[in-house]
Design a protein around this nucleic acid. Structure first.
Length: 337
DNA sequence: TGTCCACGTCT
DNA sequence: AAGACGTGGAC
């Protein structure tokens, strides 16, 4: 461990950097105290999701549901429509559950917050420090990168220890937001802005030219390749969609009729057509869709056909924004036109 | 094109 | 406790 004064010096520099470089995101108050509802909602959205993407969704959410009570009284279906495209849809399910709890009691401590669905160690610390300006150690991907470079660290335990020692008891809200913004904007994963970094003279990685070495990354498991066919059944200007109920992935969203996803690349088009929802004059689209999930790369062949009779599940194309649809399905529909 | 970001939470 | 769970943008 380094001396206390070095940690103090670094955290002061981070706070100062942030106060000079603070960006006004929609969830940050122009002046005055942060709104805990806004902090919670934004932090849930920011899990694994970039700031730019979240800004759009966050603004839509607070326009539709200006208060926590408004959100708590909404239906899960409405939350899904607004959440569509953001990904990690269990967050939307937990958001709906959590709103009902937080409306009655909004804990101001990490242990209490972690009992709420969707709030884990990182998010509880973020809410405590940002919304309530109380001491809590935030450790997200940015903090890990900054701390591992500053001190030349590898491994969870030492990073947590140093992040804890670095977290000041003064201005915890500014520090928490500061170190995460600093990591994103200055101590970037690639091409960090070391020449203009206020911490460069204290940074192990910068002093040794090891910025690219830290953080030490663990090898990721190979993505599984999977294959499927999707069926776009059209009637006038309507498209046939159905509920996703046969798999956990993309649960609660609407989907196109699809064959089961398989690891076998070598199936024939006729095999897919046997699993079509109707006996139709299906036409194979020349465009194959590739879609990346966290752990799966999916390649989809698309069959298009004209329905002769009306059918349950037909949705006018112009009404699609009112239904929860994944980006995968949007991509497939857009590829047809 | 392909890789990385992206530890975040839940199971 | 390792694996499941989405997406888009940077490079």
């Amino acid at each position: 461990m380094k001396t206390d004064s070095l940690y103090d010096n670094i955290s002061s520099n981070i706070i100062q950097w942030w106060q000079n470089n603070k960006t006004l995101y929609p969830w940050r108050p122009v002046d005055g105290a942060p709104n805990p509802y806004h902090v919670w909602l934004s932090e849930i959205m920011l899990q694994q999701t970039t700031v730019g993407t979240v800004a759009t969704y966050f603004t839509k959410f607070i326009q539709k549901w200006p208060s926590l009570e408004d959100l708590a009284s909404s239906s899960l279906e409405d939350i899904f429509v607004q959440w569509q495209g953001l990904g990690y849809y269990s967050r939307a399910r937990n958001l709906h559950k959590a709103a009902g709890i937080l409306k009655h009691h909004f804990p101001r401590d990490e242990a209490g917050l972690q009992k709420i669905p969707g709030i884990g160690p990182y998010t509880s610390a973020a809410i405590v420090s940002i919304a309530f300006n109380k001491h809590a150690v935030v450790i997200d991907g940015n903090v890990k990168r900054v701390v591992s470079r500053l001190f030349g660290l590898e491994g969870e335990k030492s990073i947590t220890e140093h992040a804890t020692a670095l977290t000041p008891h003064q201005e915890p809200g500014d520090y928490a937001q500061g170190i995460m913004d600093f990591g994103r904007l200055v101590c970037r994963p690639k091409n960090p802005l070391c020449p203009q970094c206020p911490l460069k003279q204290d940074c192990y990685a910068a002093l040794h030219g090891l910025q690219a070495t830290y953080p030490i990354k663990t090898p990721k498991p190979l993505k599984q390749q999977q294959y499927a066919a999707a069926f776009v059944a059209l009637k006038d200007n309507s498209i046939l969609l159905q509920e996703q109920n046969d798999k956990k992935l993309l649960q609660n969203l609407l989907t196109l009729p699809m064959t089961p996803w398989t690891r076998d690349q070598e199936w024939e088009d006729q095999d897919a057509l046997k699993q079509a929802p109707f006996d139709l004059d299906w036409e194979l689209s020349p465009v194959q869709i590739k879609h990346e999930f966290t752990h799966i790369t999916l390649r989809v062949k698309v069959f298009k056909g004209a329905l002769k009779a009306s059918h349950k599940g037909l949705i006018p194309l112009e009404n699609l924004p009112n239904y929860p649809i994944s980006t995968l399905v949007k991509k497939i529909i857009q590829s047809i036109d």
